[in-house]
């Protein structure tokens, strides 16, 4: 141990860690993620068959998928989908719902204000901060560039 510096030890430890099962993880991410998207497409198609316009279809699909993600999280199923699907379960908007509902449920014991409501955006908060923040910057850049050009 004495003749090993931090760098050497870190490198040595790195090769001790079993590698993830890349192919299997990718395959399951592909299937789970793909299926959730297909499901979204089906919902969208049903909504447009009811004569909803494009904007309403988009919003309606998000709302229904978010509901399903939240519902499956509440039932204790979404974490199992996530264990199998990995990024395939995290990246679709249902995963966004999961990231909101899971801390909200977990922190209920700390009360409805400092528990549920404040912890709800523990994981999803940064998504809103950076998403909304960057989109406003995009809009401002658009204004500057179009006015300038």
């Amino acid at each position: 141990m004495e003749n090993m510096n931090n760098k050497e030890y870190q490198k040595y430890v790195e090769q001790k860690i079993p590698k993830p099962t890349y192919a299997k993880n990718m395959l399951f991410a592909f299937i789970v993620g793909g299926l959730i998207c297909v499901f979204g497409q089906i919902i969208g198609n049903i909504l447009s068959n009811y004569g909803l316009n494009k904007e309403k279809v988009a919003a309606g699909t998000s709302i229904i998928l978010v509901f399903l993600g939240a519902f499956l999280t509440g039932l204790g199923v979404y974490d199992k989908i996530g264990k199998i699907g990995g990024a395939g379960a995290a990246i679709p908007i249902t995963g966004f719902a999961n990231s909101i509902v899971s801390p909200a449920m977990e922190f209920k014991k700390e009360g409805f204000i400092f528990g549920v409501a404040s912890k709800m955006f523990n994981i999803a908060g940064p998504v809103l901060v950076y998403g909304v923040g960057s989109s406003v910057i995009v809009g401002i850049l658009y204004l500057i560039l179009t006015k300038g050009g």
Partner: peptide, 10 residues
């Protein structure tokens, strides 16, 4: 959180 769908590394 327990119900969060993350994979645990090996």
């Amino acid at each position: 959180p327990l119900e969060y769908g993350a994979q645990r590394p090996f």
